[in-house]
């Protein structure tokens, strides 16, 4: 399951929205500021670290939703 998140642009501090699956696949994401042409992409060397973090985060979220008796589809 893909996780939607954002990080602040190093240039203009506007959000750069991304999805975990696309980020791990090497796709670049552009800044939401139309006047800022910054785009970022995850380096291949740190792909495993980020993937592991997203998997653990997803596991925690699934455990929480199952305990609350509600599953989001």
């Amino acid at each position: 399951m893909s996780i939607k998140s954002k990080l602040d642009c190093p240039e203009c501090n506007m959000p750069i929205y991304f999805e975990s699956n696309l980020l791990l696949s090497g796709q670049s994401f552009s800044c939401s500021n139309p006047n800022c042409d910054v785009s970022i992409a995850l380096t291949a060397t740190d792909k495993d670290v980020v993937s592991n973090a997203f998997n653990k985060f997803e596991q925690i979220r699934n455990n929480a939703t199952s305990q609350a008796g509600h599953h989001e589809t």
């Binding site: 910054v38 785009s39 970022i40 995850l42 380096t43």
Partner: peptide
């Protein structure tokens, strides 16, 4: 996951950093 032990001080945690390529 997001922090790791410092190499200098084992009792100190430092944030795990990941590298991105920024294009502009």
């Amino acid at each position: 996951t997001c922090f790791e032990k410092s190499t200098d001080d084992n009792n100190q945690l430092v944030p795990t950093m990941v590298n991105f390529t920024l294009s502009r």
